[in-house]
Simulated scan of single mutants.
Amino acid sequence: MIPTQFAYVAPTSVEEALAALAEHGDEAKILAGGQSLLPVLRMRLNAPEVVIDIGKIDSLREIRDEGDSISIGAMATYAQILGDAGIRDSLSLLHKAITEVADPQIRHRGTLGGALVHADPAGDCGAPTLALEADLVIQGPGGERTVAATDFFEDLFTTAVGEDEILTAVRFRKHDGWGSHYEKFVRVAHQWPIVSVAAAVKVDGGTISEARIGLVNMGSTALRATATEQALVGQQATEDGVRAACDLAAQGTNPPSDLNGDAAYRSHLATVLTRRAVLKAAGSS
C-alpha cells in the first residue's frame, strides 16, 4: 500500500527536531532508521500529518568511549555498533544480540534508539539493554534527563519518552570480565523471536557471583528474570548448579499466546533457553 500524504521535515540538530515536535504535537512522528515506522505507514496503521526525519542529526550517530561506560547515539545503526571494537569487547552481550537482528540490509538501516523507542516486546534489543542496566538519555523542552532501563519500558509499544521528547543516547557501563550469550529461538531465519534470553554472567573460581538475565517476548515489554538472577548467585557454573535457578525464569512473566506457541509453551522455552544462555555465558567469562 501507499502511505497517506504527509509533510516531511529533516532537522539537522536536536533543537530543531524538538521545535518541530512542539509545533506539530501529536500529529508528528519521528523517523529514525525507518524499519518499524515505514511498514506501519505503508499499511496505514498510522497516518501522521508530519514525519520528522532525524537521520541528518550527525551528533546522534556518535559512539563514544567514556572511560567506564560507552555512550551509543540513538541514531547509531546496528552495523555501526557491530563494527565498534569497544562494544564487541566490553558490551559483548549487546553485540551478540544485535548480530541476531533480522538481516544485513535491516542492520545497515535500523538503529538501536529507534528499536528501543518502538518497544516491541519481541524485539532483540530490549533484553540486552535491560540486562546490561543501561541508562537512556532523553531530551525535551525542559532539558535533558536520564532514565534507567528498568523504568524505560512502560507497556506494549510505550516508553518513558514523552510526545515532545527525543531519545538521544543509550549509555552502557562496561562489562569487562563478564561472560555473555544471547539465545534466540525461531522457527525460520530472521523471524521475530518466539522467545529469546540475554544473559550476562560473572564467574569467580567456578562460582557465579553476579547474573543479569533479560527476556524477549515474555510479556508486554522486555523483562528481567530477577528470580533467576538472585538464585544464580553463589551457584556453581555447571548444568546441575544452575538448573533450579533457571527453572524460575518465567516467574512473574505474562507471555502471549499466538500461532507460534501458547503461553505455557513460551514459559517452558524460557527456562530451557535461560539454562543454555547462562551456561554458555559462564563458559565465555
Rank of each mutant, 00 (worst) to 15 (best):
L136K: 07
E23V: 02
A231G: 00
S180K: 05
A74W: 07
L279C: 08
V14F: 06
L232S: 04
N46P: 11
F153M: 03
L93S: 00
S209H: 10
D68E: 15
T221I: 08
P121C: 04
E15A: 13
A10E: 06
G252R: 05
D89V: 12
E62T: 15
A102M: 02
M75S: 00
T12V: 10
K29Q: 06
T159A: 03
V101R: 03
A225F: 06
I72T: 09
E163F: 15
A28R: 00
G205W: 07
L132C: 07
M43A: 13
M218G: 02
V14N: 02
A282D: 06
V51R: 06
T12R: 07
M75W: 01
N254R: 14
V201W: 07
L38Q: 08
A85R: 12
V51H: 09
E229K: 10
A85I: 12
F185A: 00
A20H: 05
S220N: 10
P3Q: 10
L232D: 01
L156R: 05
L279F: 03
L156W: 12
G162L: 14
G205K: 08
E49Q: 11
P193V: 01
V278Q: 03
I63L: 06
G126V: 01
F172T: 04
Q230V: 14
V50S: 10
A237M: 09
H190F: 15
I54S: 01
T159Q: 00
L248F: 07
V170N: 01
Q5P: 14
A7G: 12
A47Q: 14
L38H: 09
L45I: 07
E210Q: 11
S59V: 08
S180L: 06
I57H: 01
A119K: 03
T168Y: 05
R42V: 10
P121T: 01
G86T: 14
F185K: 04
Q236V: 11
I52T: 05
A122G: 01
V137W: 11
G123K: 04
Y182W: 10
E165S: 09
D120C: 06
G214K: 06
Q105E: 12
K96C: 07
A199E: 04
V101K: 09
F153H: 00
Q35R: 09
L167P: 03
V161P: 02
